[in-house]
Nucleic acid binder design. Structure first.
Lengths: 220, 220, 220, 220
DNA sequence: CATGAATGAGATTTCATTCAT
DNA sequence: TATGAATGAAATCTCATTCAT
């Protein structure tokens, strides 16, 4: 006779506090990501994170040591997420121009969908990349985009559609720049220009513009 | 009868604490700018600012009301400074391409020379432009660059050297983007790429690249 | 039929966690003794003791009730150990002077070999002997040294080698004092005198001195 | 005309909180000495110290940095006090035996009157003299007693009343030992011997005994 | 205007102990 | 017996702000 206890229950939903360490850890991390994103490192409150995650505050220290440790874990997870998403891009068999367009759009869309990445990057730079430097985990996560860009540039140059001698790192930075600044500074820019830069069609327009700028630069 | 107090003494150097209101105020603002730049709003310490400025802490409250008031004053002064610098640019009688090049280089050089502007912009966006929105003073300070860009674009289009139908706001944002992201994220970028992006020739290379990107986009 | 469980397996080495109550208890006590010795009652951490002993924290509560109960057990074991060692001394048929010398050296050597006893004594006095007073077990463990001293004093006085009318309790306290203070305060004394008082020959010199002081006092 | 405000008011009693920094500092130090004496470093509570001293808790951090800093200040003051008391002893023109008796009684009486010194010494040794080693102030405060003992020993030896070749440091330690152990361990000793060792005549008896032991050792 | 001590609210962190399995 | 996650109370420390002079 089958006993229900012998097989693991199929992903039953549990509440935090119900002795599911993975879930507890994940709940903390999720709440912490939101808190650090919206308040920065110094503005974030451990108490808020505990409340938001529905977890006993003590658990934060149990799993992450201290506030800095929690911030580092958030940073690592956030970096890890973008790196994994980047790895999903396969541009090897694409036409260089199409591939580059795809890469630019991917970056832009990622920034739109992941404000936490932008905010944490800002926070990290305010702190002079103190945590990034400390994290072996992140330093090992090199972005594959630079390699993809190099490859596209080489193929495009060979086909005569891209100018030769483009520095892939400069280009990578420029592609990121054009989206980052817009999204990261959306509040000040929207205020100063008196219009909502995050309206759907404003985002679409900006995306087209970025592609246009980058491809104009690359084209021979 | 002449009273010594009625005429201002001729620029004698005074120490803080010597009852020179203007000097005290300026000392506070200078120290506060440095503190908010390096620590953000939440990380900044009123005590540090007092110590750094050599001024009694109470004076900060006397002159600026509270910490937020001080931050707002710093923000206003910083915005005011860049707007004044921008006004110094005279491109009306310049060749459109040269004028554009000048404008791009001005922006890039300003970012290099004024990290406090970049940092405060980041801080302000973290706080959803709360202070910027509150400040009539800043909202009145529209950047003249958008107007200059419009004018250059119009003249360039007329001369057939620039493509028509370029949105000056998009372009303004892009010009700023390409410098802002690089300087603002110099710590994380330098860490990840394993090289010092702020070395003099790295900065020069980046400046050339930015000019190249923008002018490539504009050229017909 | 023989059941494996009825006879104890012949001293096979087990790991903690393998359901050997005696071993678990002993491991906890050993780790706790080290912890209380080096940190005192308030400085000791239940978590450290669990980790040091390789035993689950819950077991500490299972076996000893609470932290205080564990401390009491450590205190009792430590007192028990010195009492048992003292009982091993047989001075009845010794020449009084030799016997006294033996007793003094025994005490001194015990203090050298058992810093946990000295430290716990200090801790216990900081707490006004609260635990000692609570422990019937310890109060029943009278030191046999006082009796031995009495006997030696009586025989020595009779033989005319010791002064009469020496209070054995005062003498016992003095013998302990001369060693206790030196070993117990070795860190401050070594620091202040700028030399290592626990070097082997320093210890030997101190031992000779203590014997000399006590016997000088006793001799007629 | 004399204005009352021009002359400093003659030592009017003020309550803590009345803006008398010296008094505030002293009140904290006094309460902290009592707290650390009765509870040790780890058992002491900053909150208790604040309450006992009638001072806002924040002031403790204002004046002493942190709990460790406060403990260090207490330790320094306590050491400073005994050193100053020792300096008050003038034995140069005394008969060696009388001088030695005086020195022994001084030490004994100091220990009776200053339980805080004994307790802090115990606490400090539990912490391996960590704070003592850190304090330049204390390390510079060498006890003058060793010098006084040397001098008395030399004169006594010359006069033929003391044995020659006595190590003044060993003797100093022994004099301290005989009183320290008794007072420091009064709770355990009283419990074990079932009598109050701190009754006035018990103290007097112990004092006589200590003098007897030390002088017996010294006499030729 | 200027000073430095004082304050209270709240932040992070610690710790003995208990719970669910 | 044994485990490791969870808890709540309380500890240390921080910080913007105000008070008395």
């Amino acid at each position: 006779m089958m006993d229900a206890r012998t097989t693991k229950p199929p992903a039953r939903r549990r509440l935090a506090g119900e002795r599911d360490p993975e879930r507890t850890r994940a709940a903390i991390l999720e709440a912490a990501t939101a808190e650090f994103t919206s308040k920065g490192l110094n503005g974030a409150r451990v108490d808020h994170i505990a409340r938001r995650s529905g977890v006993n505050k003590r658990m934060i220290y149990y799993y992450f040591g201290d506030k800095d440790g929690l911030y580092l874990a958030v940073l690592e997870e956030t970096y890890s997420a973008i790196r994994h998403a980047e790895i999903g891009l396969h541009l090897d068999d694409r036409d260089p121009v199409d591939g580059m367009r795809e890469l630019i759009r991917f970056t832009w869309n990622y920034f739109i969908a992941h404000p936490e990445f932008l905010s944490l990057l800002g926070t990290e730079n305010l702190h002079q990349a103190r945590f990034l430097k400390k994290s072996e985990k992140i330093r090992d996560l090199h972005s594959p985009l630079v390699g993809m860009i190099s490859s596209l540039l080489a193929r495009g140059a060979k086909q005569g559609v891209f100018r030769p001698d483009v520095d892939p790192v400069q280009l990578y930075i420029s592609i990121a720049s054009l989206g980052f600044f817009y999204m990261s500074n959306k509040h000040t820019l929207s205020t100063i220009f008196g219009r909502d830069l995050t309206a759907p069609n404003a985002l679409a327009t900006r995306g087209d513009h970025i592609v246009d700028v980058v491809l104009s630069y690359l084209r021979v």
